[in-house]
Design a protein around this nucleic acid. Structure first.
Lengths: 237, 237
DNA sequence: TTCGGCCAATTTGTCGACAATCTGCAAAGA
DNA sequence: TCTTTGCAGATTGTCGACAAATTGGCCGAA
């Protein structure tokens, strides 16, 4: 916090990007990466100076990130970065399990064969990356959500995709960032993706949903295993 | 829009309610009831005059209602009340099906016996109201969500409840208001509530989930039946 | 008649100042 | 010494003005 964080310049000159959008992105990044720590009090004048804008767009950014559950605002008392704890992590995965299971079911009903084939190629690329990495981790970057992102969109339900990808995704990233999950079992995760895709390709919605729900629940177990090696509840390390 | 809409005064003097919160409530009400029609352009100076506040809190209210999916904002072009259509209605119910099914499952695991008994009494009250009304409709007011509200809370997952009750509830109310659903089959709906509750009381999460998902899906069918009697896609009547 | 360009009016985004509320510290009282 | 109260400073909420972007209407050219 010593220099003014330069807001990202738009690389597409034909679309207008507001300061609020830029501050939202920058603030989100600072939160997800832990630069602004979980539970930390957010000071408006200070952050406005940091990002080089007035308090107006900064307040709007805070409000947007509140909607994404990264920030909690109490009227007249201020805003804080959301605190992380095991209970919330479990709640997040229970919620995602339901939504991603439904997304997989709907994808089995609605995804066209071209998109399914693209997804198969995507998993091939994942497999190659895992081999190159010696099978230690399943890094997808946005790609961990590239598969899930594709399924969420393939479900053909914009509301469902919006909740998963706009409302919950950044909170999940926050946990993943904090837990530095080297997922282990990369081949297993990839195999699960493959099974889900096979069920979708066979248009078996019930099976796709069941497999996806298991997959998400196993992801929860892996993350809580990592977390179990430290303090049980407080992730504010 | 001839007089200034008086913002509701707080009846609890010990807590401070911001203008933004008041404007959010008033604007939400105007949208859900159709006073501000689906698809309508929102004019900031006009609405600020209407509610007797400056544009700042009005903009904050708009942003909050965007998070609740009642408003769609395009940067530099303005905000509109969300348009309603069959596709979105179906998307809403598919999403609720997944979430409410999960809520029922979790409630079966976690709800304590006192809360279950209260819910049983609640259904008794619902039954009495239906009898008094000659069985024509299952009016619950907030009570249609009194049962669902209770289940969502009984699930013990604040994130899941938040999505259902904060993020999606008002959009659902908007559809219900518009479709004026006399649900018909009041006894059937009540019976389904009863079956869900019985499964929860028996701690049978899988059954509770299945029954709840069916119940929500049937609700979708009823609403689309009502809507099917008018224009197929456009609910902007 | 239709389409494109230009301009003025309006709306949306942002700014900085003022009002309202909260928080922390110091002093006084028990 | 501990607790309570009051006050000052800081922060949050709101206001109105200015800047930036959009929209609609009119005019001219094809």
């Amino acid at each position: 916090m010593q220099i003014v964080d330069k807001l990202a310049e738009s690389t597409v000159q034909s679309t207008t990007v507001t300061l609020t959008e830029r501050v939202t992105d920058a603030l989100q990044h600072a939160i997800v990466t832990g630069d602004l720590a979980p539970g930390a009090k957010l000071n408006e004048p200070e952050l406005a100076r940091r990002f080089g804008v007035s308090r107006g767009p900064l307040r709007e950014a805070i409000s947007r990130l509140e909607a994404r559950r990264l920030i909690r605002v109490i009227a007249n008392a201020g805003a804080r970065v959301v605190a992380l704890d095991t209970g919330q992590l479990i709640a997040l995965f229970e919620t995602r399990e339901a939504l991603e299971g439904q997304a997989a079911r709907l994808a089995a009903e609605r995804m066209d064969t071209a998109a399914i084939e693209e997804l198969r190629l995507l998993l091939d690329r994942h497999a190659a990356a895992i081999s190159a990495d010696g099978g230690r981790a399943y890094y997808q970057d946005e790609g961990d959500y590239d598969f899930h992102y594709r399924i969420a969109h393939g479900a053909g339900n914009p509301l469902l995709a919006g909740i998963l990808l706009d409302d919950l995704y950044q909170l999940l990233r926050m946990y993943r960032f904090r837990l530095s999950a080297a997922h282990g079992r990369a081949e297993q995760a990839l195999a699960e993706h493959g099974q889900i895709l096979a069920a979708i390709a066979e248009r078996d919605g019930a099976l796709a949903e069941l497999l996806m729900r298991r997959h998400v629940a196993r992801g929860a177990a892996r993350l809580t295993d990592v977390q179990g090696q430290g303090k049980k509840d407080d992730l504010s390390l």
